Amino acid sequence: MKPSVAVVILNWNGKRLLEKFLPSVVKTNYPNLQVVVGDNCSDDDSVAFVKTNYPMVKVLRNNRNYGFAEGYNKILAQVKADYYVLLNSDVEVPENWISPVIDLMESDRKIAAAQPKIKWQLDKTQYEYAGAAGGFLDKYAFPFCRGRIFDAVEVDTGQYDDVKEVFWASGAALFIKSEAWKAVGGLDADLFAHMEEIDLCWRLKNMGYKVMFCPDAEVYHVGGGSLNATNPFKTFLNFRNNLIIMQKNLPKNEVFQMIFIRFFIDLAALIHFLFKGETKFAWAVSKAHVDFFRRLKQSNRKRTAVQIPFHEHVGVLPSSIVYNYFIKKIKRFSHLTGSL
């Protein structure tokens, strides 16, 4: 029998998205599947919509909006399956999107997490910003994707159709073995949203697990379903959380130097926002740094027991993605030099 899989969609006031994308999920062709909608205390009628129209879908409700990270922690504590799939509510799926990923993960006990190819739902020839063909970090722990560097998103021509170990798998369609989820302690609730999947994957890798990209399955993501790119709060979360996950997961002899360098990179981003007249985003970067220091002791207590030297991880670019993109004008992952 195939391993049991639970596809879990976290919802908050997302009736419009559930109406559009839940039909494709319930048509999934997989023999040992349950579909769960975990509701983060919505005040629209999305829960009633699911219960009325999709009685085969299990609905679990949180007593308040816990955000993405803790919201999933609360819901998955109530779900039993061999594999969890954390699926965004704004993702369309084809019928056979689960089996290829599960088959890959079953082939190696060290594989804890994986993602399918993630393409843009509005133009399915393109990769999608949040995940593309797998996630990587540069030498200063700045995240980017195979198929997407900053705002340069590539058309999918089959250039990344190889099974590949990556640094992180996107939370838009994250497959994870339930035993690995429990071993690593789930998502970090203090991150609230954004980069929590990078933190999760980093902790898994520090435990000796692998994170993989599976090209034989693909899904179609709209993106920005909860917070779009024009929201300064998203900028705040991205900058703050990136610093927090570095503090938590880097070895002691690397963490101070890396964060010190990142402060200067972030300062350049702040100045860039100011020159563009985007003062709300500049202020968001500043607030991110203040909040990072405010949480320093709290985050320090969450440091993993073992930290592998950063450059020894698979999926780390041995140069700066900021320099490659803005100075060298490299827009495609395949044009990057160095071992990846």
Rank of each mutant, 00 (worst) to 15 (best):
3 P>S: 05
4 S>M: 00
10 L>R: 12
16 R>F: 06
18 L>G: 00
18 L>F: 02
18 L>W: 03
20 K>M: 07
21 F>H: 15
22 L>K: 01
28 T>P: 09
29 N>C: 09
34 Q>V: 15
35 V>I: 15
38 G>H: 08
39 D>T: 05
39 D>Y: 04
40 N>V: 14
40 N>C: 12
41 C>Q: 13
41 C>S: 15
42 S>K: 07
46 S>L: 08
47 V>F: 02
49 F>N: 05
50 V>Y: 00
51 K>H: 04
57 V>C: 08
58 K>M: 11
60 L>C: 06
61 R>N: 12
63 N>L: 11
64 R>A: 14
65 N>I: 11
67 G>Y: 13
73 N>V: 02
87 L>M: 11
89 S>V: 14
92 E>F: 13
95 E>D: 14
96 N>L: 03
107 S>D: 09
107 S>V: 04
110 K>G: 11
111 I>M: 03
116 P>S: 05
121 Q>P: 00
122 L>V: 06
129 Y>G: 04
129 Y>I: 12
130 A>R: 14
132 A>D: 00
133 A>W: 03
133 A>P: 02
138 D>I: 13
148 R>M: 07
150 F>D: 00
151 D>N: 10
154 E>S: 02
159 Q>F: 03
161 D>P: 01
164 K>Q: 09
166 V>C: 00
171 G>Q: 03
171 G>E: 01
172 A>G: 15
177 K>C: 02
180 A>D: 10
183 A>V: 01
185 G>R: 12
186 G>W: 03
192 F>L: 13
195 M>T: 15
198 I>A: 06
200 L>N: 04
202 W>K: 06
205 K>P: 08
208 G>L: 08
208 G>H: 07
210 K>I: 05
210 K>L: 03
211 V>A: 07
215 P>L: 05
218 E>Y: 05
221 H>R: 08
225 G>N: 14
227 L>I: 11
231 N>F: 05
235 T>P: 01
239 F>T: 07
241 N>C: 00
242 N>M: 15
243 L>R: 11
244 I>G: 00
244 I>H: 02
249 N>M: 11
252 K>A: 12
254 E>H: 12
256 F>R: 13
258 M>E: 11
260 F>W: 10
262 R>V: 09
264 F>C: 03
264 F>W: 12
266 D>C: 08
266 D>P: 00
271 I>A: 04
272 H>E: 13
274 L>N: 04
277 G>K: 03
282 A>G: 07
288 A>D: 03
289 H>T: 02
290 V>G: 02
292 F>A: 04
295 R>E: 10
302 K>C: 04
303 R>D: 04
306 V>N: 14
307 Q>I: 05
308 I>K: 12
310 F>E: 10
310 F>V: 10
310 F>D: 11
315 G>W: 02
318 P>E: 06
318 P>K: 06
322 V>G: 09
325 Y>H: 12
327 I>L: 13
327 I>A: 13
327 I>C: 13
332 R>W: 02
336 L>T: 04
